[in-house]
């Protein structure tokens, strides 16, 4: 709970911050707190991803972006209250929706009755992987994981092609100057 309060404080600070450099640092702090919270919830693999992507890679990427743009955010020209109203209504609807969910961490809710018992009981026999999460990701849902990997691979190829085009243009410009 204390961690959640800290997360809320960081979020408010990020929204109020006008210096984008400060926003990058605060976003890194947010990721570290979030990863700690996920570990407290016993989701170690998700926490590892959050820490490496959120605190590591995206800090570097955001800084590289800041190098290309200005580092201060413009103050808003007019204050429009309609978006805030929409956000409040949608948020209230989402909170209202959570009221009908089963309590947090209950083992006999509907979600945990479908295939989870079979995974827990049979994963060693059927897949031979000692970690149940790994066996679900890489065996029972392997087509899903293959699709995700394809998407990420395609995105990586796209980014590499874009960067290569930029570099080639730089080379031509440099040659012209000298």
């Amino acid at each position: 709970m204390a961690l959640l309060t800290l997360l809320a404080a960081v979020t408010v600070a990020i929204v109020r911050q006008r210096s984008l450099f400060g926003v990058v640092v605060l976003a890194g702090i947010y990721s570290f707190l979030m990863a700690t919270l996920l570990i407290a919830l016993d989701a170690v693999d998700v926490a590892m991803t959050e820490a490496s992507v959120g605190a590591g890679i995206s800090t570097v990427l955001l800084l590289a972006t800041l190098h290309l743009t200005k580092t201060t955010e413009m103050s808003p020209i007019n204050r429009n209250w309609l978006p805030l109203l929409v956000v409040l209504i949608v948020g209230a609807a989402v909170v209202w929706g959570t009221l009908s969910l089963p309590p947090f961490g209950v083992a006999d809710s509907v979600v945990h009755q479908h295939v989870a018992p079979r995974y827990l009981a049979q994963s060693i026999v059927e897949t031979g992987v000692p970690n149940v999460v790994t066996s679900v990701l890489a065996d029972y849902r392997s087509y899903d994981t293959l699709g995700e990997t394809t998407v990420i691979f395609t995105a990586g190829i796209g980014v590499l092609l874009l960067l290569r085009g930029l570099r080639r243009r730089d080379d031509i410009g440099g040659g012209g100057e000298s």
């Binding site: 600070a13 450099f21 400060g22 702090i29 707190l33």
Partner: peptide
């Protein structure tokens, strides 16, 4: 929480960087 206060209030960028590093270590 104390380091976070420094990160939010921090007048200069270096306060924020140091606070961020401290929070990483404390995590």
């Amino acid at each position: 929480a104390l380091a976070l206060t420094r990160a939010i209030l921090g007048p200069t960028v270096f306060d924020r960087v140091l606070a961020g590093n401290t929070i990483g270590s404390l995590a």
